[in-house]
Write a protein that binds this DNA or RNA. Sequence first.
DNA 1: CACCAGGCAAGTA
DNA 2: TACTTGCATGGT
Length: 213
Amino acid sequence: MKKRLKRVYKKLYSIFGRQYWWPADSAFEVMVGAILTQSTSWANVEKAILNLKKHKALSSRRLRTISLSRLALLIRPAGYYNIKAARLKNFADFFHKQYKADISKMRSANTGILRQQLLSVNGIGPETADSILLYALDKPVFVVDAYTKRILSRHGFIKDNYGYSQVQDLFMKNLKRDAKLFNEYHALLVRLGKDYCKKNKVKCEVCPLGYDK
DNA sequence: CACCAGGCAAGTA
DNA sequence: TACTTGCATGGT
């Protein structure tokens, strides 16, 4: 499995090259984006983030003080806006109370402890927590998403009923614990998924990885 | 028109 | 523990 996973990575990298994830101006913007992109296209998230920037609302202080309804209005393009507005506030409150809204304090925390703390915030699940750890804080944690499972399942690496942590373990136990590698690998899987492995538009016959299921 | 996108929590059995 | 459902906009 170690060789197979590394071979897939090299293949994807040779085809698509660097993906430059996560596109953002700051670590805080990555964290906000991680919540906004829950089951939502990145193009819509970009509109929401632009609105937050235009109204100077992209800070933990502003996210805590702005009214729920006004925040919801700003992030409307990202969908699920009422729920996500509450989730952003939950996260901003946590960030302020636990880490004094200080990214460097958060970065120096123990990864396992921090992951548990993030998961305890209502609105932050495994993928969002790991996206924050990896893409905002450079922690060597592999992010699993719907594309990851779909691609691995269709290529026979896993059964389609594997859970989040099972898929995550597959990567983390068989690859060097390297944030840069995890960063690029996950981004490449999403790239492949967008181009060739959409939910109901399977293009296995032209998938660069081949089709060996 | 239908389908879905870089999920999650709450409810049900 | 293991499903099911609500949440919602904007692009294809």
